[in-house]
């Protein structure tokens, strides 16, 4: 009887260790990830809707969310354009130093965010390598919202490149040959034949970079200047509320951001489901 009950939710296997490994996985996952996140959400329910709304719609929280979202959006857009070029160049062309360039794309994943933060600040400070070139033009990057955009562009850089590369490799060259033999010039073949097949991966990379940018903290706090209402990002506001021992304020902003992450996650899945229907792959 009991074997039948088991068989209904899992296929029998002669490989031992199912109970042990799945049990350990579920326990560890629950203790480290699920229970603490549920605790955070529960903590927010201690607030009434009016209180929650008062915090969420306060001018400072709204400004911080707008900056985090807006700067991440611009950073992801920059990465979509240049990431597409980088991915294309790395897959299609041969030139000296290509392998090194390919390897260094992952730097933002490997370099600690605090290191990236102070390095970018040093470069874009008005006395820095690039900052001193921009200062005469009246452009200040460090300690303004532009600095936030620069940091989020850095942090999101690998996402678009790495999601596009395998898809560009997979493009069937015969499709391009067909387009050329039917009279399309190269520009039309790229725009009308190749680009549509890259679109789902490009969108996925864009949303991944965007999601990462909204939650990013370490690389931004050094270059942003952190002026309330102006250059204060949402994650920093959580930290500030915590240091003030305002747990309710911190959790309210945090659940708002969790909700945004969830929407991003849903978006990625919708893009991939659509791509699977439309193109038959992700």
């Amino acid at each position: 009887m009991s074997t039948l009950a088991i068989a209904s939710w899992r296929r029998p296997s002669i490989i031992p260790g199912f109970g042990l490994t799945l049990g350990f996985t579920l326990t560890y996952l629950s203790l480290i990830v699920l229970i603490p996140i549920i605790a955070l959400v529960l903590r927010t329910t201690a607030l009434s809707w009016q209180e929650y709304w008062a915090i969420a719609s306060s001018a400072r929280v709204a400004a911080a969310l707008r900056l985090s979202f807006g700067a991440a959006l611009i950073g992801a857009a920059i990465n979509a354009v240049f990431g597409l070029i980088v991915a294309w160049v790395l897959v299609r062309y041969e030139f000296p130093g290509k392998r090194v360039l390919d390897a260094i794309v992952d730097l933002p994943f490997a370099l600690p965010t605090a290191v990236a933060g102070i390095a970018l600040t040093a470069i874009f400070d008005k006395n820095g390598w690039i900052g001193q070139l921009l200062a005469p033009l009246g452009i200040q990057v460090a300690y303004t919202w532009l600095g936030v955009v620069v940091a989020l562009t850095f942090i999101g850089l690998p996402f678009v490149v790495r999601t596009l590369q395998p898809v560009i490799v997979e493009i069937d060259r015969e499709i391009e040959e067909a387009a050329a033999s039917l009279g399309a010039d190269r520009w039309h073949a790229v725009v009308k034949v190749i680009m549509p097949t890259l679109l789902p991966a490009l969108l996925t990379g864009f949303v991944l970079a965007l999601a990462r940018g909204i939650g990013e903290y370490g690389s931004v706090v050094f270059i942003a200047g952190n002026i309330p209402y102006r250059t204060e990002i949402a994650p920093l506001l959580i930290v500030i509320r915590l240091t003030e021992f305002d747990y309710a304020g911190a959790t309210a902003v945090a659940t708002l951001m969790l909700a945004i992450s969830f929407v991003m996650f849903l978006t990625i899945n919708l893009i991939q489901a659509w791509a699977r229907r439309r193109y038959g792959y992700v």
Partner: peptide, 29 residues
């Protein structure tokens, strides 16, 4: 190594920490 129901959900949940802001990761503890 096994086929069981709920596998997709489990795989998704394992990836969850990547989509949570690091600050929130500290906050939950």
């Amino acid at each position: 190594k096994y086929e069981f129901r709920g596998k997709t959900v489990l795989t998704t949940l394992i990836d969850l920490p990547f989509s949570v802001s690091p600050v929130i990761a500290g906050l939950i503890y």
